[in-house]
């Protein structure tokens, strides 16, 4: 049997669960028959409506822009602080305690403070995104830079590498998979945070739109925007994973 013939049934099998979920949704909608649960068709129409005539693209742009700025801010703060916690001795190592105390606070719990400090709108939501994304970025950076394989460190010592070469030629590249994992997790958290932040304290964006549509009892619109949020989040994760695979081509754990 050829490889292509072997793959096709597998690819088809992977579609069974999504199709079953869609069918279950359609069935529940038909049985319940209430405006509170529209079927897939009504949602598809609402989606097309929002994409063609509604503010979907403007909302998507607003949310993505906040995610981009908040994520970049989180990286700009989280990576250097993580590096300091890993390499800066006990004084900076205490940063881990601060981060550990802040991590259990969900980003959405910062919304009241964000509104008080930065007001309803762009800056507040961007701030929430940065708070959410910085936690995994900091954690992975501080962990990855601290935990260089001791065998490689001994090898570097044996060839007589200086501090600078050990940092730039060994510790940093050895930490890249962790740094990348932190950025990727941070992006996922950024996306979920921006929706939550906009739901509570913004005048635009996909999260704001869901809240507005709910007030207008436009349930198909709400669900259509939820699907967009899910699809965009999955696409972003996929894009980072592809970039990661291209940049980090050595297998994990190889030494």
């Amino acid at each position: 049997m050829s490889a292509a013939a072997g793959r096709l049934p597998a690819r088809g099998a992977a579609l069974v669960a999504p199709i079953a979920a869609l069918a279950l949704w359609a069935l529940l909608a038909a049985v319940w028959s209430s405006p509170r649960l529209p079927g897939p068709l009504a949602v598809a129409i609402a989606l097309a409506e929002a994409a063609l005539n509604g503010p979907l693209w403007a909302d998507l742009g607003a949310s993505l822009s906040r995610v981009g700025r908040g994520w970049a801010l989180a990286a700009a703060v989280g990576l250097p602080l993580g590096a300091a916690a890993a390499l800066g001795g006990p004084l900076f190592g205490g940063l881990r305690l601060v981060a550990g105390a802040l991590r259990p606070v969900p980003p959405i719990a910062w919304v009241p403070l964000a509104i008080l400090w930065l007001g309803l709108g762009d800056h507040g939501a961007t701030f929430i995104v940065a708070i959410g994304a910085s936690a995994p970025i900091f954690a992975q950076a501080s962990w990855g830079l601290a935990r260089c394989p001791p065998q490689l460190l001994e090898m570097a010592h044996a060839v007589g590498a200086g501090r600078r070469q050990v940092l730039l030629g060994l510790r940093l590249p050895a930490a890249l998979p962790a740094l990348s994992a932190g950025l990727r997790t941070g992006l996922g958290v950024a996306w979920t945070s921006v929706i939550a932040a906009e739901l509570l304290g913004a005048q635009s964006g996909l999260g704001y739109r869901i809240g507005a549509l709910r007030l207008g009892l436009d349930v198909p619109g709400v669900i259509a925007h939820m699907l967009v949020i899910g699809a965009v989040g999955a696409l972003m994760d996929r894009a980072v994973a592809v970039a990661e695979a291209r940049l980090l081509r050595w297998p994990a754990g190889a030494a």
Binding site: Q151, L152, A156, A158, G160, G169, L176, L248, A254, A255
Partner: peptide
């Protein structure tokens, strides 16, 4: 060493270069 201890993100030549840079 017992294990090769090559830097997995560098080519073979790049690994030799690491030692020459250190030297």
């Amino acid at each position: 060493f017992q294990e090769p201890r090559l830097l997995p993100w560098r080519s073979v030549a790049g690994n030799l270069d690491f030692a020459l840079e250190a030297a």
